[in-house]
Amino acid sequence: MKNTVCLLLSGLILWAFRFAAAAPVVATKVYVISLTGSEVHEKPSFQARVVRKLPIGTAVDVVQTIASDDVKQVGAGFALQGDWMKVTAPGYTGYVFSSDVTKRKPEVKKSADGLLSVDLLGVKKSSRVEKKKQPTGNKNSPADYAVLETTEYANCTYTTTTYDGCFDHNYTFRHLTLPEVYHHMISSYAENEYDHSLKATKLEQPKLLSRKGNVYRFTCGFGGSATQDLKLTVQGNGVITISSYDCT
């Protein structure tokens, strides 16, 4: 009897081992959100040969994630942490850095000047408009009014406040990573500018100006943009905000 039980157990173990060995690797689809694309390296290292560059919005399958202490420089004095992801596609296999991609399917947009960008706001849920008094600071003058328009998305609450020809923009992201919010910001505020000296279109994107604690300030107002005080703030509890203003 004992021999029979042992034989049965051995058979079950061998069957389970063979099944596990034969089971296919379940891939996870990710999407490139870096405005300048994502490099596919031959090995999980920035020093490894680049076998391909994937444009923004490209979808690839991840079959393995390798934990890493590496960081990717995305501007002067600013870097994003991440891991290495082994990706496969027809014709190549390689490694991308996780700060370049997201598991959330973004909306890919194209501007009038041909600039591609990604939108990670998510599905629009609702919107509302309200009017509130805006003190002028002058007791002899009637109060101005500001108009607040709030739009709720799956991943973000966007509020624009209009007053005296100026506009405040505030994005409150929930449960998105710093790389995801950063790349959404870069996509939203970048511009294609025509460089007459080079007779070519030049990509202009926000660059880090300063950091104080969890508040990052970026360049803005380049080209024909009137955007000012572009700021990204990591508030904690899964909340990250982007704010700016512009005046006509």
Rank of each mutant, 00 (worst) to 15 (best):
G137F: 10
E193I: 06
V147E: 14
G223H: 08
Y216Q: 06
G213W: 01
R217P: 01
Y163I: 11
R217E: 14
R217S: 12
S197E: 09
Y182V: 02
L148R: 12
K125D: 05
R174L: 09
G223T: 10
S188W: 00
V123C: 01
K103P: 01
L198C: 00
L116A: 07
K207H: 09
T160A: 12
S111Q: 08
R128T: 10
L120S: 08
R217G: 01
P106F: 06
M185V: 05
D100G: 06
K103V: 12
Q205W: 01
N155F: 01
V181A: 07
T177P: 07
Y153W: 07
C156E: 12
T136Q: 10
S98Y: 04
K139N: 14
F97E: 08
C156Y: 04
L209F: 03
T102K: 07
N155P: 04
E193C: 00
T172W: 01
H196P: 02
E193K: 03
Q134E: 15
E149Q: 15
V96W: 07
K133F: 13
Y158L: 15
H196G: 00
E152L: 15
T177E: 14
Y194A: 00
Y145A: 10
D113Q: 12
A200C: 00
L121Q: 08
N138K: 09
D144E: 15
D113I: 01
K133C: 05
S187E: 05
T102S: 15
E107R: 12
H175Y: 07
N170E: 11
G114R: 02
V101F: 06
V118N: 06
G224R: 04
S141A: 15
H175N: 15
T172L: 11
V118S: 06
V108P: 08
T201Q: 02
S117I: 05
V96Q: 05
V96N: 05
L209P: 03
S188D: 14
G114W: 05
I186Q: 14
K124H: 13
V118R: 04
P179G: 10
Y189K: 04
G137H: 10
K207G: 09
